[in-house]
């Protein structure tokens, strides 16, 4: 398993706590925050490789957060996570540069596999720019 840093952003506290614990159990360096604004704040201090971003959140939703992240930290790969399959927001998300758009509930193994691919992409892009 390559070592990368993951930030999970979700306003549902129970879900957030569980997923972060389960990822940590798999030896993945995972952190959780409860809103888009908290995520932006944390990104200013700490760098992450991958973000798991819930689409439906109060105040600043996932799409808005994604827009902001891609503007300020274009190298971070973002996987959108959604409870409601919405084609419109899916298209928006992909157009704004998300790596993937995944429906809840997602199997942990699938999610980890997608993270590995997203991380591979991040490394490849860094190599390409250099």
């Amino acid at each position: 398993m390559p070592s990368f840093k993951v930030l999970v952003v979700d306003d549902e506290f129970d879900f957030l706590e569980t997923i972060v614990k389960r990822l940590q159990k798999r030896k993945i360096d995972a952190t959780g925050v409860g809103s888009g604004l908290e995520a932006l704040k944390l990104l200013e201090e700490t760098s992450f490789d991958i973000l798991i971003l819930d689409v439906k959140m109060p105040k600043m939703d996932g799409i808005e957060t994604l827009k902001e992240i891609k503007r300020r930290w274009p190298a971070v790969e973002v996987i959108m996570l959604t409870g409601h399959a919405s084609v419109e927001s899916g298209m928006q998300g992909m157009q704004l540069g998300a790596f993937d758009y995944v429906m809840k509930p997602a199997k942990l193994d699938d999610l980890i596999e997608k993270m590995v691919q997203a991380y591979e992409r991040k490394l490849l892009r860094e190599k390409q720019i250099r």
Partner: peptide
């Protein structure tokens, strides 16, 4: 401008069937 900007693709291995299946699942409910 989004459309015109020259974003270089990042090439990696893709399981095409699975990628398509994921997107189909997203559209399926609606």
């Amino acid at each position: 401008l989004n459309f015109a900007r020259k974003m270089d693709p990042v090439m990696q291995a893709v399981e095409l069937n699975r990628l398509i299946d994921d997107m189909a699942a997203l559209v399926e409910k609606e």
